[in-house]
């Protein structure tokens, strides 16, 4: 609570470097599609901007623009698209859940898709990536000379 006070009313706001787990947790119909013995590891980061909205919510720029809000210290934001062709509806979503811990952000990003036809759901695929994030603290005043 004290940390939230020190950081202001929108503690998630800012630019962050996200480091995702290399191996996602995959479920649904695609869970066995990549069932091999490969391993992958990296320190590759990704810049993510989080904006506080006038409504009290947040916008998270994570490839798509996710919107949501923070409740009891947990930020939840999501993006969803659906399109229908004939009797088939396809959906894609992206969701983020995150908390702050000692100045860092921890959480997971879930991405998935599903397809529904007249007979109900006929395909789902969900992947969840854990992440840690480090806040960018650079600001213009810290490096522009003569200002």
């Amino acid at each position: 609570m004290l940390l939230a006070f020190l950081l202001g009313c929108s503690p998630f706001e800012g630019t962050w470097v996200f480091y995702f787990d290399a191996e996602p947790a995959v479920s649904g119909d695609c869970a066995d599609e990549d069932d091999d013995d490969s391993t992958y590891d990296t320190n590759r980061g990704m810049l993510v901007d989080i904006y506080a909205l006038g409504s009290g919510g947040y916008a998270v720029v994570l490839e798509e623009v996710l919107t949501g809000e923070a409740r009891f210290g947990v930020l939840h934001a999501e993006w969803l698209e659906e399109y229908t062709e004939g009797t088939t509806t396809r959906s894609n979503y992206l969701a983020l859940d995150a908390t702050l811990e000692a100045g860092a952000m921890l959480g997971e990003v879930s991405t998935g898709s599903w397809r529904e036809s007249e007979g109900g759901s006929d395909y789902t695929c969900d992947s969840t990536y854990g992440f840690t994030a480090d806040r960018i603290t650079s600001n213009r005043d810290s490096y522009v000379e003569g200002e």
Partner: peptide, 20 residues
Amino acid sequence: DIYTTASGQTVANLAGTLMT
């Protein structure tokens, strides 16, 4: 672009490729 993070690391953004 060169940034500093809260943990004290330096991040260089090389045309979208982040190096730490």
